[in-house]
C-alpha cells in the first residue's frame, strides 16, 4: 500500500500545480502540451478512482451543504496547494464537537423508564436485543406463510376426508356439488377428532351423566359390536388391529404415616406375610402362588 500511496502523492503534487492554473477560467486557452499532461494525469487518476467530471463538479457538490462550500472556498483560495507535503504535517487538525444535539439524543423508552422509576436504577441496563430471526422470517414472508397455510389446510382435509366422503355421498344428501368444508354436526365431529388427536381424554360427545342402565346398555352394545366385527374378520381371514386390553386398576396399599414399610404392625409385633418374605428374599416365587393366596385370604 505504501509505495502506491507515495506514487500517488508524487503524481498529484506535480499535477495539481499545473491543473490549478488550468482550472482557472483565465487559462482556458491553454497550450496543447499542458492539456496532454492533464489528460495523462486524469487517466492515471481514473484508473485508481472513479471517473471524474472536469468542469461542473465543484459547483454541483457545493450547492447543498454550506459548510463544505466554505471549505471548498478556502481550498480554492490557496490555489498553490501542492498535495500532501511534509509541511502539512505541522498543522494540527482541530475537530470540534460543539453541538450538543445529536441524532441519538433520545434514549430508549425502556431505559428512561428504568431510570425514572421509583426504584434506584440498576447499574446495568440491558438494552433489549432485537430478535434478528423475525426479520429473516419476514424476508421470505409470502412464500413461507402460504406454505404453512397450505400445509395446515392439507392436514385438515386428510383428517376430515372420511367425514367429507360420507357427507358428499349421494345417499347422504341430495346436493350434487361436493364441498371441501365441513358444516354443522360434521364440523363438530371434526373438531372432536382433532381434540382427541391432540390428547383429549374423552370425546366431547360422551354424555357425562345418564342412567346407569342406559350406560351399561351402550357399553355392552359397543363391546358386542366390536366382538362381532372381530369374529367376522376372523372368519374371512382379515387381520385386524390388536385388541386393546383395558388394564384393571389395582389399588395401591394404603400405608399410614409412620407405619412400617413392609408387613403389618399389630399388637407390638411386625407380622410379615409369606409374600412379603418372598419379596424381600426375591426368590422361589413359582409354585407358591396358590398357597400364598390362600394364606392371605385366610388371615383376613
Amino acid at each position: 500500500m505504501a509505495p502506491t500511496l507515495g506514487k500517488r502523492k508524487r503524481v498529484t503534487r506535480e499535477g495539481l500545480e499545473q491543473s490549478s492554473h488550468l482550472h482557472s477560467p483565465s487559462s482556458a486557452s491553454s497550450n496543447s502540451d499542458s492539456e496532454d499532461v492533464q489528460d495523462i494525469f486524469r487517466r492515471a487518476f481514473e484508473a485508481k478512482f472513479k471517473p471524474l467530471d472536469v468542469e461542473p463538479q465543484e459547483s454541483k457538490i457545493t450547492e447543498p451543504e454550506e459548510e463544505e462550500e466554505e471549505e471548498e472556498e478556502e481550498l480554492e483560495e490557496d490555489s498553490d496547494w501542492s498535495g500532501i507535503s511534509s509541511e502539512a504535517e505541522d498543522e494540527i487538525e482541530v475537530i470540534e464537537h460543539s453541538t450538543t444535539r445529536r441524532l441519538g439524543d433520545r434514549l430508549s423508552k425502556a431505559e428512561m423508564r428504568a431510570f425514572m422509576s421509583s426504584k434506584p436504577p440498576t447499574s446495568t441496563i440491558q438494552t433489549p436485543s432485537k430478535p434478528t430471526f423475525s426479520k429473516l422470517a419476514k424476508d421470505d414472508d409470502p412464500t413461507e406463510a402460504s406454505h404453512l397455510k397450505n400445509d395446515l389446510a392439507l392436514q385438515r382435509l386428510l383428517r376430515d376426508s372420511h367425514l367429507l366422503s360420507s357427507l358428499n355421498s349421494p345417499s347422504a344428501s341430495g346436493n350434487s356439488t361436493p364441498t371441501l368444508s365441513l358444516t354443522g354436526s360434521s364440523r363438530h365431529k371434526s373438531i372432536d377428532l382433532h381434540l382427541q388427536s391432540l390428547g383429549a381424554k374423552s370425546s366431547i360427545f360422551t354424555q357425562k351423566s345418564m342412567p346407569m342402565q342406559d350406560r351399561k346398555r351402550i357399553l355392552s352394545k359397543a363391546t358386542q359390536r366390536e366382538e362381532r366385527r372381530r369374529a367376522e374378520a376372523r372368519e374371512n381371514g382379515i387381520v385386524l388391529e390388536k385388541e386393546k386390553r383395558v388394564k384393571k386398576y389395582v389399588k395401591e396399599r394404603a400405608k399410614g404415616v409412620g407405619g412400617p414399610g413392609v408387613g403389618r404392625f399389630k399388637g407390638g409385633t411386625l407380622t410379615l406375610s409369606k409374600r412379603d418374605i418372598a419379596d424381600i428374599t426375591g426368590g422361589g416365587r413359582s409354585g407358591k402362588g396358590k398357597g400364598k393366596g390362600k394364606g392371605t385370604y385366610g388371615k383376613r
Partner: peptide, 9 residues
C-alpha cells in the same frame, strides 16, 4: 434515589 440508594447494594 439514583446516587446514594444504589450504594446499599
Amino acid at each position: 434515589r439514583t446516587a446514594i440508594l444504589p450504594l446499599y447494594k
